[in-house]
Amino acid sequence: MSSVSTFVKPVSPQHQATGVQGRRKTFEKLIQAFLFVCAGISVATTVCIVVVLLVESVQFFFEVSIVEFLTGTKWTPLLKPQHFGILPLLCGTMLVAVGSAVVSIPVGLGTAIYLSEYAPPRLREVIKPVVEVLAGIPSVVYGYFAVVTISPMIRTVFPSAGPFNAASACIVVGIMTLPMIISLSEDALRAVPRSLRQGAYALGATKYDVTTQVVVPAAMSGIVASFLLAISRAVGETMAVTLAAGATPKATLNPLESIQTMTAYIIQISQGDTPAGTLEHRTIFAVGLTLFIVTLMINLLAQWFLSQVREKYE
């Protein structure tokens, strides 16, 4: 580098050139170091969290067998006799995840198809920002909305439902995850080349034919990825389900009953009544680790589907 510069500017004093260059090089190195630290922070945080989760969980599993944890059907760590079976919490989480998907997948995909294929451009300009507003509503507001609005509506239709029930949590989490499905699916649908649509139209296909037989299948991996990310979000959702679904760990598939999800349980323990360092407190790390593994798996699967999309059109 310096030799090139010397050749180009043979008249400039040597010491001055190296001075400027030296400063430039130091600056470049500083910037690089700063950016490395920035990138390192997220990596270090991830590593720390995983380590803490693992260490605390391992201590927990010294006292509670992993078989009991994974297969037990009772979760009563705060009551005597203590039971540490995670299935009720896992069941609660899955009930909310699946229930919310029942709401969000049809509505979200329908909206995405409408926006991408059917909506006139002006209407799309209106709908898209509204969907983004939906994404910006704090989850505690959704939780409140579930308790004061949705739950009473459910109880009008199904009088047997309790004031806290899984169904209201499902509906509200479904609404919360809608923007994710809509925007990711719409991106996937729009990524389908126009030439494919034209090819189908030229063969005498109707808009419905083109959408259902060409565009949606071509975008399928992106659409599935959006479903998975929405489900992952529903699994990790905390505030709304804590408020709406109640705090009754129960291995039930009845959405009208009160349940407890893994996240809601972690909130319950973290609120401070349970002293740190006790077995009861350590349960949240074991539950947290389980939650982490579940969402990680779903996210990895979603990433794999997204990579399929990229392969197809590049």
Partner: peptide, 17 residues
Amino acid sequence: ELRKRVGMVFQKSNPFP
């Protein structure tokens, strides 16, 4: 019906996936 009678081939080949 018109497009079934009047077929079209495009500049860039566009087979469906």
